[in-house]
Design a protein around this nucleic acid. Structure first.
Lengths: 133, 133
DNA sequence: TCTATTATAGATATAATAACTCTTTTATAG
DNA sequence: CTATAAAAGAGTTATTATATCTATAATAGA
């Protein structure tokens, strides 16, 4: 029961753009160096973010990644969902009982967490020091 | 990012005691039948609950499992922690930075979820119908 | 058009964890 | 002593996460 490392990398990468310069465009190599992972692996993660509209990409020479217009309103939950998929933390009720009390409790708990993650947006970190990454 | 099936089985088993008869003692076989898993696997899970003090066990003939005194105040979080261990949903900040903003957000979100899971106790289900398991 | 650069996609390999089984041991009522 | 039932240990299988390698597609600049 953990968030994946990929989610960790995605969150850090997004915040890296924000705390250094939200308008800059960067290739995957410098980002991978910061995250200390291989460029190819990080590119997979970035591609997921691109597909979710959380990052813009440009192929070819002078290409790279950057934050899209409206990046300020991107939430932690957006990023997590982009990487982990539409997660439901819990499944597996007996006979798939739709009345299952266990599931109801778990879903409500998950909702509390998601509420918090939805409220935290990239805008909250616009003035943060890079050292806090 | 999911709760394990073992957690699911543990929660269902605990609630099964509550909604049928909180005072009954049951062997692992009938419980395993309800959960539709093997008795040996379920016994591992039950042993974890016993070690956490959430279930009482009696070895030998006429042995079995039952809820302990004070079962009413056992929370979902207690059960989850007993099975999953002291989970922190998130780890992996750059250089283990203790200032890591990402971690701070994730921990606060996790706290919200745990708050909810702590508030839901077995007492809440004392009058529930077995059909809602 | 050619070349260098960079993202994207696919296939695959490795590692870690979850899920489960089998066997043996320990405990206890009768 | 025996039947019964939980506990413990070792091991297996399946699934998922993590990552790498290679090939393809796109684009800027010469």
């Amino acid at each position: 029961m953990k968030f994946s490392k990929a989610t960790n990398y995605a969150l850090h990468t997004m915040l890296y753009f924000v705390v250094t310069d939200p308008k800059q465009q960067l290739g995957v190599q410098p980002l991978a160096e910061k995250m200390e992972i291989s460029p190819t692996y990080l590119s997979k993660i970035l591609t997921q973010l691109v597909k979710a509209g959380l990052v813009e990409s440009a192929s070819g020479a002078k290409g790279g990644y950057r934050l899209p217009r409206g990046w300020e309103s991107i939430s932690f939950l957006d990023i997590i969902h982009a990487v982990e998929g539409p997660v439901s933390l819990f499944d597996g009720c007996l006979n798939d009982n739709p009345e299952c009390m266990v599931k109801q409790v778990m879903v409500s708990a998950e909702d509390k967490m998601e509420e918090e993650l939805k409220q935290r947006t990239l805008a909250d970190f616009a003035e943060s020091a890079p050292a806090a990454l």
